[in-house]
Amino acid sequence: MISFIGAVFLLIITPGPGVLSTAGVGAAFGFRAGFAYVLGLFIGTNLVALAVVTGVAAVVLASPVIRSVLFVLSTGYLLYMAAKIALAGTKTAFEPAARCPNVWDGIALQAVNPKAYVVNTTLFSGFVIFQDALLTEMIFKFVAVNAIWIPIHLGWLWVGGALKRMELPKATQRLINVAMAVALVLVVVLAAAAQFL
Rank of each mutant, 00 (worst) to 15 (best):
L11G: 07
T54N: 13
L50W: 11
F9L: 13
A7I: 02
F42N: 06
V25P: 04
G44V: 06
Y37V: 05
L20I: 15
F31C: 09
I13Q: 05
L50V: 07
V38F: 03
V59H: 08
I12N: 07
I66R: 00
G34I: 02
Y37K: 09
T54I: 12
V56C: 13
F31L: 13
F42Q: 04
V65C: 05
V65S: 11
V69I: 14
L39H: 04
V56E: 13
L70K: 01
L47V: 11
I13H: 06
G55E: 13
L20W: 01
I12K: 01
V25N: 09
R32A: 11
L39W: 07
V59I: 15
I5A: 14
S21R: 03
G24L: 03
G26I: 03
F31V: 03
F31R: 05
L10R: 11
T45C: 06
P17S: 14
G18A: 15
F31H: 06
V60W: 08
V8M: 08
P64V: 05
V25Y: 02
N46S: 10
L47C: 05
T54H: 11
V65I: 13
A51V: 07
L50M: 12
A57L: 07
F31K: 09
T22A: 12
G24Q: 02
I13P: 06
S68G: 14
L70F: 09
G34W: 01
A27G: 11
I12F: 05
A27Y: 04
A49F: 06
G34P: 04
S63V: 04
V69M: 05
I12L: 15
L47E: 02
I66D: 01
V48W: 02
V53Q: 07
V52I: 13
Y37M: 12
A23S: 14
V69W: 00
V72I: 09
F29R: 02
L20R: 06
S21N: 07
G30D: 12
R67Q: 11
A62N: 15
G18T: 13
F31M: 09
V25S: 04
V38A: 06
T14W: 07
V38K: 00
S63C: 05
L10Q: 11
G26Q: 04
A27V: 00
V56A: 15
V72C: 00
I5V: 15
L11F: 13
L61K: 08
I12T: 12
P64Q: 00
A33T: 11
T14E: 09
G44Y: 03
L39T: 12
